[in-house]
Simulated scan of single mutants.
Amino acid sequence: MTAKLSENATRQAIVPTPAKETAAASKQRSDYWFDFNQTLPGGQRLVLGTIGWMTFLLLWQVTSQMDLAPDRLYPAPAAVFSSLKDLFLEQNFFSDVVSSVTRIVISFAIAILIAMPIGLLMGSFARVDGLLNPLLGAWRYLPAPAFIPLLLMWLGTGDTQKITLLLMGVVFFLVIMLADVTRQTPKVLIETAKTLGGGRRIILWTVLFRHSLPGYVDTCRQMLAVSWTYLVIAEIVAATDGIGAMMMRAKRFVHVDDIMAGIVTIGVLGLLFDVLFRLVYRKCFPYLGRERS
């Protein structure tokens, strides 16, 4: 009798009840949606991103109807997109966009040309890092806009001053970050290259640089966003063209919809450049594409 009771109790413990099944299924769904280190397919990422943007636009529309501020000072999304259309079709805003993009591309290309060799050497050789890191690390904390009066006196009001300001805003951060990427090269690769008879130049180029190149591209993608944040600052001082100059002209006449249209334009351009960097990353390093998807 005791054995039969024990057997029944064991069966009840083994056979799941509906409540246990429901709890297990709920936990499984929770783990599925919020598991660590998941990779999402492209379609799911697109759907989630669209939901995020639609939520943002909905909140913007709702708050614009809540009388938090006059319509002229807080326009609805439709008004801003209408203003954006008028800027491109009637006010030659496309030339301003081209001017801003040109300044960003030139300044960031110069920053890469300066930062990549210095970052490679700092990340590879401790003495180079000991010499330059204290100096460049300190320059990172100096705000680039503080140099605007000096740049105006030294370089005038032309594009050279604006490109220099954009360059100063990112180059010191970029050097330190690229050096950090270089340091992540596994020591076993360097020791193996030494064992095979590789000299400093060969190890620097074929091991350290090539192993770090994917990280360099990803770091440049992140730092390009910082360059866009300095664009308006560079173009609000004595500028006749560019997105920032258009926004300053709109400020004089309290055209908030034009100002917000300029902000939207910068955001869209930044997103397009980010997508371009991602495409370059996947094209050049297809063996790493799945890890980042």
Rank of each mutant, 00 (worst) to 15 (best):
V217W: 04
G267P: 01
S107A: 15
R201D: 01
D129W: 00
T229P: 00
F173L: 05
A25I: 08
I203P: 03
P77H: 05
L121G: 05
D35Q: 13
I118M: 14
V105H: 05
I236Q: 10
I118S: 03
V175K: 03
D241H: 09
P143A: 11
Y141M: 02
H255I: 00
V237L: 06
D31N: 14
A126I: 06
W53N: 04
R292S: 08
P117D: 02
Y287L: 08
G197L: 08
F277P: 14
R103M: 15
G289T: 13
S100A: 11
L167Y: 04
M177C: 00
T185E: 03
L68E: 06
Q184D: 10
P18H: 07
A261T: 10
I114W: 00
D96Q: 14
V188E: 09
T206H: 07
T192Q: 04
K251V: 09
L178V: 01
L271F: 15
I243P: 13
M66H: 05
A115S: 15
Q44T: 05
N92Q: 13
T195K: 07
P77A: 01
I106M: 09
L48I: 07
I112P: 01
V237R: 03
V171P: 06
A79C: 01
T206C: 02
L174T: 09
L48A: 12
L155Q: 05
D274T: 13
L40N: 04
P41H: 06
W33C: 06
A78H: 07
G49K: 04
A79D: 12
Q91N: 15
P149K: 06
N37H: 09
I106A: 08
R201A: 02
K251T: 10
A9Q: 12
L196Y: 15
L189Y: 13
I51R: 03
I14D: 07
G262L: 08
F108S: 04
K20L: 08
E21F: 03
I118K: 04
M54W: 05
L132Q: 00
M168G: 11
P16Q: 14
F34K: 06
S124P: 10
L288T: 06
G197K: 10
G130I: 02
T182I: 02
R45M: 13
A144M: 05
H211C: 00
V275I: 14
P16W: 11
L142C: 01
L46N: 01
L208E: 07
F93V: 10
P134D: 10
L113T: 02
S82M: 06
S95R: 12
P186R: 00
Y216L: 02
Q12Y: 07
P149S: 03
L271N: 08
I51W: 08
L231S: 04
E21S: 11
V101E: 09
G242Y: 04
E235G: 09
A193C: 06
L279D: 11
L189C: 01
S293Q: 15
F34I: 14
S82E: 12
D35A: 15
P70F: 02
A13D: 13
Y230G: 12
T219Q: 00
Y74C: 02
E7S: 14
L113W: 03
G137S: 04
L213C: 03
R200F: 05
R252Y: 07
R103Q: 13
V101Q: 11
L59P: 05
S95M: 13
R210A: 02
L189F: 12
S212I: 03
A250D: 07
L151S: 08
